[in-house]
Simulated assay, not measured.
Amino acid sequence: MIEYVKGELAELTPAMAVVDTGGVGYGLNISLNTYTAIQGKKEVKLFVYEAVREDAYVLYGFSDKQERNLFLLLISVSGVGANTARMILSSMSPSELCDYISTGNEKVLKGIKGIGLKTAQRIIVDLRDKIVTLGITTEIPTGGSMSAPVNNEVKDEALSALAMLGFSPAPSQKVVVKILQEQPDAAVETVVKLALKQIK
């Protein structure tokens, strides 16, 4: 299994990167997010997903693990193939995608080429809890106002503790973020105790 390819960026288009490693040029399918991230660089490191089919062996490259994790989650959804997942990740940033899934915004997902209403709904239902569990979601937006930054370390530990206690990640995330916005210096134990009283 190839974990990543590191070497000289020999060729780059918005859909493909060729990385020269030890005299071998690896052609990797990329999203627009990765294209933007590596544009202008001479040396690159791309995390890899290998798609092995009867008629083809295709490599997909990602500038960071977060994007690859999202790609893997997307292709786990019934009806979403590798090219569709790449299309989704080219249409929006990983944080935007997480926000749309977290808030159940099927309208935006449905607007992406190749995604129908049922597939958009399936993506939201299948991945809403998973993106929180994996820690690759951003704060769930509240009421359209700019949310104050929160202590991610405390947030992650509190969410992990609540998950172990059997609470669903999505409602836990909302409550924990709200507590940390009101009490930025709260310790993990305090956040968990307060969250236990507030999670419905």
Score class of each variant (00 low, 15 high):
Met1Trp: 09
Ile2Ser: 06
Val5Gln: 14
Gly7Arg: 08
Glu11Tyr: 14
Thr13Val: 03
Pro14Leu: 00
Ala15Arg: 11
Ala17Glu: 11
Ala17Phe: 12
Val18Glu: 13
Val19Ser: 08
Asp20Phe: 01
Asp20Gln: 09
Thr21Met: 03
Gly23Lys: 04
Leu28Asn: 11
Ser31Lys: 06
Thr34Pro: 05
Gln39Asp: 15
Gly40Met: 05
Gly40Ser: 03
Lys41Thr: 00
Glu43Cys: 03
Phe47Leu: 08
Tyr49His: 15
Glu50Cys: 07
Val52Glu: 09
Arg53Glu: 10
Glu54Gln: 14
Asp55Leu: 01
Tyr57Ala: 02
Val58Asn: 09
Tyr60Ser: 05
Gly61Ser: 07
Asp64Ser: 03
Asp64Met: 04
Asp64Lys: 00
Asp64Arg: 01
Asp64Val: 04
Glu67Met: 09
Glu67Lys: 04
Asn69His: 06
Asn69Pro: 00
Asn69Leu: 15
Asn69Glu: 15
Leu72Trp: 09
Leu73Cys: 05
Leu74Ile: 02
Ser76Val: 01
Ser78Arg: 11
Gly81Lys: 06
Gly81Tyr: 07
Asn83Ala: 04
Thr84Gly: 08
Ala85Gln: 13
Ser93Leu: 01
Ser93Trp: 08
Pro94Thr: 03
Leu97Thr: 03
Cys98Asp: 03
Cys98Thr: 11
Cys98Tyr: 04
Cys98Gly: 12
Asp99Lys: 10
Ile101His: 04
Thr103Ile: 07
Asn105Tyr: 12
Leu109Val: 00
Gly111Tyr: 11
Ile112Asp: 14
Gly114Phe: 15
Ile115Ala: 00
Ile115Phe: 13
Thr119Arg: 11
Thr119Tyr: 12
Ala120Gln: 06
Ile124Phe: 02
Val125Trp: 05
Val125Cys: 04
Asp126Leu: 01
Arg128Val: 04
Arg128Thr: 06
Asp129Pro: 01
Lys130Thr: 03
Leu134Gln: 13
Leu134Arg: 07
Gly135Gln: 06
Thr138Glu: 13
Thr138Ala: 05
Glu139Pro: 00
Pro141Leu: 02
Gly143Arg: 08
Gly143Glu: 14
Ser145His: 11
Ser145Asn: 14
Ala148Lys: 14
Pro149Leu: 10
Val150Lys: 10
Asn152Lys: 08
Glu153Tyr: 12
Glu153Ile: 07
Val154Met: 09
Asp156Thr: 00
Asp156Val: 00
Ser160Gly: 10
Ser160Leu: 05
Ala163Gln: 14
Met164His: 13
Met164Ile: 01
Ser168Lys: 12
Ser168Tyr: 14
Pro169Lys: 00
Ala170Met: 09
Ala170Lys: 10
Ser172Glu: 09
Gln173His: 12
Val175Asp: 15
Val175Ala: 05
Val177Cys: 04
Leu180Pro: 02
Gln181Asp: 11
Gln183Arg: 13
Pro184Leu: 00
Asp185Cys: 05
Asp185Trp: 00
Val188Gln: 15
Glu189Arg: 04
Val191Phe: 07
Val192Tyr: 15
Leu196Asp: 11
Gln198Leu: 02
Ile199Tyr: 11
Lys200His: 10
